[in-house]
């Protein structure tokens, strides 16, 4: 039985440690924008490795994610290997490698939220947006992610929608929130067919 388990384990490990995909700028215009914004942030810091995380936070604050161009630029500026930047980026939950959506949905999965059905809420978001956590909808309207705890456990289950914590978010409230954004299931397709 142990052999059995260890084989399973190896498979899991290979799955767990696949490299996260790094995104690059889609076109020259975007590339220039990325480089410009990264350089503005870099100017605020001296060339010390201890500033790596604050720099990354600054760049992500501006761009919403960390594209390849930014990471290379930062590595170059601090005089460290690009892989070291990548290692820090992928270690911390805060940093993301894919571009964000227009609205960010963060489902709290803290203890209190979990017990009051946070996982059910997460399922509801996934079902409605048709994406998995950590992903962005193809139209870049929403991105869905989980957060360990936002510290308002008394409002459980909590979803942070565009930085604003919403309390008691149950599946029906998910629909309500989406409606607030003018998002209705099948609406896009309907509009498309109407305009045709």
């Amino acid at each position: 039985m142990f052999l059995d388990k260890s084989r399973q384990l190896r498979q899991n490990c290979s799955g767990q440690y696949t490299m996260s995909k790094v995104n690059s700028a889609a076109n020259e215009k975007e590339r220039k924008h990325i480089v410009k914004e990264t350089e503005t942030i870099l100017k605020r810091f001296t060339r010390k490795k201890q500033y790596l995380i604050p720099i990354l936070q600054g760049v992500q604050g501006k761009l919403g994610y960390l594209p390849r161009e930014s990471m290379l630029k930062i590595a170059d500026y601090l005089g460290i290997a690009a892989i070291d930047v990548y290692s820090v980026v992928t270690f911390y939950n805060q940093f993301r490698l894919n571009p964000p959506g227009k609205h960010s949905i963060r489902v709290c999965l803290g203890t209190a939220c979990h017990m009051k059905g946070g996982y059910i809420t997460l399922d509801a978001w996934k079902r409605r947006l048709k994406i998995d956590s950590g992903e962005t909808t193809p139209d870049r309207e929403f991105d869905l992610d989980i957060v360990a705890c936002v510290g308002c456990c008394t409002m459980a289950p909590v979803t942070v929608v565009d930085e604003k914590p919403e309390g008691q978010v149950e599946p029906t409230r998910v629909d309500g929130l989406l409606l607030g954004f003018g998002y209705e299931e099948g609406k896009k397709e309907k509009e498309k067919s109407e305009s045709k």
């Binding site: 790596l52 995380i53 604050p54 290692s87 911390y92």
Partner: peptide, 25 residues
């Protein structure tokens, strides 16, 4: 102020220090 980037293990003091130094915690 140093803003932590969301790693539970950084509550451990040596990991926290590694994080401030700019490394993976």
């Amino acid at each position: 102020i140093f803003q932590g980037s969301g790693a539970f293990v950084c509550g451990e003091e040596t990991a926290l220090i590694a994080s401030i130094e700019g490394n993976a915690g």
